[in-house]
Computed example of a mutant assay.
Amino acid sequence: MASGKTQLLPCLLLACLFHRSTGFVFWTAVVEISYMDSQNETKDRICECGIFGRNAAIERAYGVVTLPRGDPKGCGPDPAYNRNASSPSWIALVKRGNCTFSEKIRAAKRLGASAVVIYNADGTGNTTSHMSHPETANTVAIMIGNWQGMEIVKLLQNGTEVNMIIEVGSPHGPWMDTYWLYFLSIAFFIVMTASIAYFVFISANRLYNLRMLRRSEKRLKSEAKNAIQRLQVRTLKRGDEETTSENLLCAVCIESYKAGDVVTILTCDHIFHKACIEPWLLEKRTCPMCKCDILKALGVEDESKDEYNHNTSQEVTVITVAGGDAMYEVPLTDTARSHHYDNSAFEGEPTRG
């Protein structure tokens, strides 16, 4: 779960950055004009020299280019255009200035223009800007340079009919810039590298914990085996209390004892069949009846920890019966270890009679 949350954060940051940056992306417009010159030859000119407005409809438009009457800037509450009634589709060509872009576009759209082309103010050359006109959505509106606009104006003023086709160009802006692409590639590489590194770290950590758990289980089984070798083992004979009493049963196999059975006596004095209790102790390491821990009772666990930590200091283990007081102390020295029960039958289990 933590891994999923960690991977989710970089994605949210990139999504937020993308949302904030899309407003800076703009589309160019391919402007194509055609007209008849003085020799009645068709002239075609095409350039990717226009820019769609921020609120414009990014789509194709075509028609006869038309200028406003009087004021070339197309301002005022009700401007008029030199429309040719025989041309159903026309494009308004107006100059920048005096009023807002929205007012120019709204006025031409109200009169039926299929698109509005605004050319830049005098002295700006062929530079353009990304105009904003929030009140005229769904209208094709582009800006072209002053020189390009004045060239079309002169043709129209000389009585030449000019047809224009506006095509959608290509997107531009920070997300389309080469440096931004490099930045995105590097950011993506960093995020992916961090995610892979985190995954490898988590996997390695889990494998390490699993390995340590297995080593711990193996060590505990080895300690249990050492503890089992110290337990007292005897063979029951006829007349022993265990063979004559019906109340004494092996708590593991729930069977009565009989003469010839090999039994193991735990530190808590509970008796079990040797073949039954030894597999149990290897896994559980406690008495099935009173839960007495044989490793703690015999001091095997503490002895193993001392060897692992290279601690040579002498310790004392108190052997207790569950629920009772301390019975006696056994110092963990070489001399003390010589007083353990010797389970010679552990390696080769005798056949039960």
Rank of each mutant, 00 (worst) to 15 (best):
S3R: 15
K5Y: 15
P10K: 14
C11W: 08
L13M: 15
A15H: 05
A15D: 02
F26G: 03
W27T: 05
T28K: 12
T28N: 12
S34V: 07
D37P: 10
D37E: 10
E41N: 14
T42Y: 14
R45W: 09
E48L: 11
F52N: 02
N55M: 11
A56L: 04
A57R: 05
R60I: 09
V64L: 07
V64P: 00
V65T: 01
D71N: 08
K73D: 02
K73F: 08
A80V: 13
A92K: 00
K95N: 08
F101G: 00
I105G: 03
R106C: 00
K109I: 03
L111Q: 06
L111F: 10
S114N: 13
Y119S: 12
D122Y: 07
T124Q: 12
G125T: 01
N126P: 02
T128I: 15
S132F: 11
H133T: 07
E135Q: 07
A137V: 09
A141L: 06
N146L: 13
G149I: 03
L156R: 09
Q157W: 15
Q157Y: 14
N158Q: 09
G159T: 11
T160E: 09
E161C: 08
E161Q: 09
V162S: 04
V162W: 08
V162G: 04
I166T: 07
E167P: 01
E167T: 06
G169V: 07
S170I: 05
P171R: 13
G173A: 07
T178S: 14
Y179M: 05
W180Y: 15
W180S: 12
Y182H: 14
S185L: 13
M192G: 04
M192R: 06
T193V: 15
S195A: 11
F199E: 04
F201N: 10
F201Y: 14
S203T: 14
N205T: 14
R206W: 15
R206M: 15
R214S: 06
R215N: 08
S216F: 14
E217N: 14
R219A: 14
L220Q: 05
L220W: 02
L220E: 12
S222K: 15
N226E: 05
R230Q: 06
L231C: 15
Q232N: 09
Q232R: 10
R234N: 00
L236G: 03
R238F: 04
R238W: 05
E242W: 11
T243S: 04
T243W: 07
S245Y: 13
L249G: 06
A251F: 03
C253E: 12
E255S: 11
S256L: 12
K258I: 12
D261S: 11
L266Q: 09
T267P: 01
F272I: 03
F272D: 01
A275E: 03
C276K: 10
C276F: 11
I277L: 08
P279L: 13
P279R: 15
W280K: 08
M289G: 01
C290G: 11
C292E: 08
C292P: 00
D293E: 06
I294H: 04
G299E: 01
E303K: 05
S304E: 10
S304D: 12
K305F: 01
N309E: 10
H310T: 10
N311P: 02
S313M: 08
Q314S: 04
T320D: 05
V321E: 07
M327D: 01
Y328H: 12
V330K: 00
P331W: 05
L332H: 01
D334V: 03
H339E: 06
S344A: 10
A345C: 10
G348S: 11
E349H: 15
P350A: 09
P350Q: 10
T351R: 07
R352C: 04
